[in-house]
Nucleic acid binder design. Structure first.
Length: 562
DNA sequence: TTCAAGACTTGACAGTAATAAT
DNA sequence: ATTATTACTGTCAAGTCTTGAA
């Protein structure tokens, strides 16, 4: 068994690390000559670099964002950088560019890929498997571990989320000379592709990554790291939940404290206390400040602006209602109306005084001030621990409330999903309703209707069999009654299962359960629940999830308490 | 104290594989 | 066997938080 503390006391993450380096994106294959690009109605042969970037645009032609001004502007600017001087002087207006033949060509290609024979598909699959076996694993401290992302991201056009100022920019191709390799000195150093060199080979065992490079859009660093099933990720995950459990022990004290701070003479303390209240009660993210113009305009708690909240002294039958409306991570909208305590409300009014809509709500606060304060309240406490804690405790409490021991397995699973859903709603984990949602809902309803008529038929048959038996009283008719009874029972079960499915799906239309399940819910709660109610763990976690949570599946007994 | 760089977690979603229905 | 549907996996962007230098 591994210890709760870090494996090494000096902050090192490993002693030995050996891997084969990353897999690069396949090189660009020029268009066949018959596929033409047209400028101003006339065919024009592009140089390979310009053509490659043009194909990125052509591949996206069906997407709405290729019509957006910013996207087009950014793309065109970066595209021109790849052109020869002649191309540059000729191609001056994106609106005169016709990529449609390229687009058609790619569609045909993807159609052809779908039409491949079984053998061809099998061959590709085997090749992928070979690459996985060769590059997808590493050795870390005597263990063979799965690597998370061993393929380098291919070049393409950047599509940020939401209203991103950099959408359409060229994400450049990553070459071996861009890559920093990290491994141990005494390992076999990965070989760069023939004729190339790595940017650097280093041996830093204070970090967990195997390779890194700097991407050109934001200038941030990207990493190759291990899969969630690895020891190093698993231990970290466990640690995260243990920190959240420590918060459970002192959360009452912290709540008392911040409520007290609502009355503080100092503005910065009041702001800190109100912000913390939101983080605790609404599971808001911390909200680091962001560089303006570099990313989409999104906020979290500390970066909320005046324009993001509205105060209603009275709304319907409630008093002191705060209405939140802002774009959070990934530009997902957060909309919520909640009644708050009078003191919070009065404080908010105070914070809003003499401010413009675009001013910060908490002008005396940022995440680093808040986290410094939290650190003093509990070792290892930061804003995000509240999200983990509230998510996990909600799951545990909802499971307790919703699960009925006498329920069938599908009913219990519906309860589990509802508990999971409560968490997803708390964390505002939304998804776009699946494109085929309405249709698939209809299909399910048809199935239910069919099943219902099957049931009534079966019931009639049972009735008939019974009266038959009453008349004859022989063995054969008795058996027939039993058969029919079983048939009815079976159909009833199937019907119930379908109805459960329909309910579950309907309630889940705009809610994404995956993120909370993977990142916020202490898996030991789920494992314990499965054990307690005799639910196979496979019903809750698929294979990947079971691998990620192997530590919890090993560890938790039916009486585990978060 | 501020700032940026760095390392790591969290997040929605698209493409693909697996399974079910026809 | 083929097609439709669902489940899963990989992708890669966007957060959080820490650290170290100015």
């Amino acid at each position: 068994c591994i210890s709760m503390e870090e494996r090494y006391t000096d902050g090192s993450k490993w002693r030995f690390l050996e891997h084969k380096g990353p897999v690069f994106a396949p090189p660009y294959e020029p268009m066949p000559d018959k596929v033409k690009f047209y400028y101003d109605g006339k065919p024009m042969k592009l140089s390979a670099p310009a053509e490659e970037v043009a194909t990125f645009f052509a591949k996206m032609l069906d997407h709405e964002y290729t019509t957006k001004d910013i996207f087009r502007k950014n793309f065109f600017k970066d595209w021109r950088k790849e052109m020869t001087p002649e191309e540059k002087s000729k191609i001056s207006d994106l609106n005169k560019c016709d990529f449609s033949e390229m687009s058609t060509y790619f569609k045909a290609q993807s159609e052809a890929r779908k039409q491949m024979t079984k053998e061809e598909k099998q061959k590709i699959k085997e090749e992928n498997e070979r690459i996985l076996q060769e590059y997808g694993f590493c050795i870390m401290d005597k263990h063979k571990e799965r690597i998370g992302n061993f393929r380098i991201e291919p070049p393409g056009l950047f599509r940020g989320r939401g209203d991103h100022p950099k959408m359409g920019m060229l994400k450049r191709r990553i070459r071996p000379q861009d890559i920093i390799i990290n491994c141990s000195k005494d390992s076999k150093i990965p070989k760069p592709p023939p004729g190339t060199k790595w940017k650097e080979v280093r041996h830093d065992n204070k970090v967990t990554w195997l390779a890194s490079w700097t991407e050109n859009i934001q200038g941030s660093i990207k990493y190759i790291m291990l899969n969630p099933s690895s020891r190093i990720k698993g231990e970290k995950d466990w640690q995260k939940y243990e920190t959240a459990r420590r918060l459970k022990k002192c959360v009452d004290r912290i709540r008392t404290q911040y409520r007290d701070d609502w009355k503080s003479k100092e503005m910065r303390i009041r702001q800190r206390a109100v912000a913390l209240y939101f983080i605790d009660k609404l599971a808001l993210r911390a909200g680091n400040e962001k560089e303006e113009g570099e990313t989409a305009d999104t906020v979290g708690c500390c970066s909320l602006r005046v324009e993001h909240i509205k105060l209603y002294p009275k709304m319907d039958d409630k008093e002191y209602v705060v209405e939140f409306d802002f774009l959070g991570k990934d530009s997902i909208r957060y909309y919520n109306k909640i009644p708050v305590e009078k003191r919070v409300f009065k404080n908010l009014q105070l914070f809003l005084e003499n401010k413009q809509p675009e001013d910060d709500l908490f002008d005396r606060l940022n995440t680093s001030i808040l986290n410094k304060h939290l650190q003093e309240l509990m070792d290892g406490l930061t804003a995000k621990v509240f999200r983990t804690y509230n998510a996990s405790i909600t799951l545990q409490q909802q499971l307790k409330e919703l699960t009925c021991g006498d329920d069938s397995v599908p009913a219990k699973i519906l309860s589990y999903n509802r508990a999971n859903r409560a968490v997803a709603i708390l964390c505002n984990h939304q998804r776009a309703p699946p494109k085929t949602f309405e249709k698939s809902m209809q299909n399910l309803q048809t199935k239910i209707d069919d099943k219902q008529s099957q049931l009534s038929t079966a019931r009639k048959q049972l009735k008939a069999a019974k009266s038959d038996h009453k008349a004859s009283h022989d063995e054969k008719s008795k058996k027939a009654v039993e058969m029919k009874r079983k048939a009815v029972q079976r159909i009833e079960e199937q019907l119930m299962k379908l109805q459960m499915q329909a309910t579950d799906r309907e309630e889940n239309k705009q809610i994404a359960l995956g993120t909370s399940k993977l990142n916020y819910l202490d898996p030991r709660i789920s494992v314990a629940w499965c054990k307690k109610y005799g639910i196979p763990i496979e019903k809750i976690y698929n294979k990947t999830q079971r691998e990620k949570f192997a530590w919890a599946i090993d560890m938790a007994e039916k009486d585990y308490e978060f």
